[in-house]
Design a protein around this nucleic acid. Structure first.
Lengths: 356, 356
DNA sequence: CTTAGCACTCAAAGGTGTTGAGTGCTAAAA
DNA sequence: TTTTAGCACTCAACACCTTTGAGTGCTAAG
């Protein structure tokens, strides 16, 4: 069944007012802010209908109405106006996205912090893989006779390194042999495919320096492993205390505890949203996690390239300014996609690309 | 003036009881737990003395006593028994310190989280430099005709890399020239010494690939910069809600806000403690920061080697179990020092050093 | 120096009354 | 059929009160 225009107008007014004030709103106040030329009694009738239909709730018999999750849902789906970000806001975001280090982890972490600061809600950010990562390339750099640096590059063009110090001497030719060996034996393999058998064969081929194979390969496995179980970055948990719905310390604590279970967030919240485009809004009981049943989550996904995607989102009370938050989140997500999409460098000119 | 033994015994009982219960303690209860064979009236007299001397406080005229900061200080200095960690606890810490990745940042971050979890207080951890870092070595690895990896190693043996993609082609000999050039021109310089003039000279020497110099050097500068302004990792901020003294949301919020000002923590709290050994305890008003005037901080420093040290600490109410916390913190700090002190590798044997 | 006795203080807890915003219902007006 | 005015009703919030009990300080005697 469809709601009349007037009912929608009232519902919308209730939602928007409640988002601002966090207080139940009554018929008289609505009469004023909706601008409808009807008496408060009429509005009361409408409110009664809306309550009956499940769009509104009454905290207690004689208080004003507040939106129910169903009411928020209708609002988000039909009534909400697309929020535009102000020029100032877009500038702020753009500036913040202009990060120094372009290390994947740091960028994601930073983006999360930024979003949290921007929205005043706790935020989280993570990257996830569509396919299983593999090693694309090994390089070994001799530092001195007793140490070398292993550099591994994944198929997603992520590069990691580790310094190894040895109790035994080693030589340049030895390292070169090892490098070739590693590159022929282990490139293109996923974590699972790096079997002990494979290792044994390669170790055999390595002759006297067989021990080094396993060292470098374990490192490579760590890298692959950390890419598969990508980290979740959370930021601004303290922001939940800003909002009156979490004045009750118990509630705040529960939500915070949930937010620090990073793996849970990754698995149950973020990953399902990986492939949806645009902002996704989960209101109160729409959340699977028990701890989020009376909070809301807004998510946006972004593209990292090379089969990787990321999700960035915020958590807050159901009374959330969905429009603004979704707009900001989408903007940041787009920004991230662009950031990862563009090559890292301007055409190599005489160097002053980095200014303060 | 010295306190009598009996006074000390009473003070100690007050502190320890209050640490457990967070509630003022009266003469009658003290009579029981101290085991002194005196009446509650006698104890009242002693309490009155201790209050007069400033070691105890009364929340209001007719409540029990609680320790004042001065009382805690005396307790910590003289009365507190060295806490021993249980075997279980040491095992727990040792296990946790057995980290997979030995990347400096991650280890520090992890250690902070661990301490927070171990103590139930918010924790922070950071590394600081005694001297200014320099670059020790550059390596450039050609990936394909349009991209290369720059690997820089600092004098502290920290290795960082970055993938560069170029719009122009480049060749192996070109890269080798660049590598030599970078190594001769920029090795051993601190951030400040990487002047534009130096750059210009090097760029000149690089001929056609002059643009690449500045790219790699800016990256090196970023690395140095990030080492000088080392990151602060905080963890477990939500734990402050566990403690009754922060039931008042306002207080909790203030402390949380302070905790997220990571730079302030670094500058004013942690760095001054860098060179003290063992655990350092700052009680209530002993803290410089206004926000910490009624909280306490326990700090321990650890050695990273190569002129770098780190600090790890927790923040909590003045009613903190200083003995336990200090013991745990010291143990973790020692563990970290050992971790960084030992070479990364066992003598290269046939590889099964990594098990699950 | 220690103790018993006693009047005193004060937070916490529970009870009572008032206020006011807001409701639901009904009957009349449009 | 929809809208409106009127009115009794509900209920959280607040202020105010009393009671309770743990704990105190003081005094005078042991």
């Amino acid at each position: 069944m469809e709601l009349t225009e007037r009912k929608k107008k009232i519902l919308r007014a209730v939602v928007e007012r409640y988002i601002q004030t966090a207080e139940p709103i009554g018929s008289k106040a609505l009469q004023e802010i909706t601008g409808l030329n009807v008496s408060s009694a009429t509005i009361r009738n409408e409110l009664a209908d809306l309550t009956e239909l499940g769009y509104l709730e009454q905290p207690h018999t004689s208080a004003g109405r507040i939106p129910s999750p169903k009411g928020y849902r209708l609002y988000v789906n039909e009534l909400m106006e697309e929020q535009r970000l102000s020029l100032e806001e877009t500038k702020q975001i753009n500036d913040a996205l202009h990060l120094k280090m372009r290390e994947l982890d740091k960028v994601i972490d930073q983006a999360g912090r930024m979003v949290s600061q921007l929205t005043n809600y706790p935020a989280f950010a993570l990257a996830g893989n569509a396919r299983r990562p593999t090693i694309k390339r090994f390089d070994l750099i001799l530092v001195d006779s007793a140490s070398f640096i292993a550099v591994v590059m994944t198929d997603g063009n992520l590069v990691k390194n580790k310094l190894f110090r040895l109790p035994t001497d080693l030589s340049e030719p030895q390292l070169q042999l090892l490098t070739t060996l590693l590159n022929t034996a282990f490139v293109g393999k996923t974590l699972d495919q790096l079997t002990p058998e494979l290792m044994r064969v390669a170790e055999h081929a390595a002759g006297s320096s067989y021990g080094l194979i396993s060292l470098v390969v374990s490192f490579a496995m760590e890298v692959l492993d950390s890419m598969e179980n990508s980290a979740v970055y959370t930021a601004g948990a303290s922001h939940i205390l800003d909002h009156p719905e979490y004045q009750d310390v118990g509630k705040a604590q529960k939500l915070m505890a949930y937010l620090s279970e990073e793996q849970t967030i990754a698995q149950s919240l973020a990953l399902p949203a990986l492939n949806d485009d645009g902002a996704k809004i989960l209101i109160g009981p729409e959340n699977v996690a028990e701890e989020l049943k009376d909070s809301s989550v807004v998510l946006a996904s972004y593209d990292i390239g090379d089969g990787m995607k990321g999700v960035i989102g915020v958590v807050g009370p159901t009374r959330m300014d969905y429009g603004k938050v979704a707009a900001k989140l989408s903007y940041v997500a787009d920004g991230l996609s662009k950031l990862f999409g563009t090559p890292e460098l301007p055409p190599a000119g005489p160097g002053k690309e980095k200014e303060e």
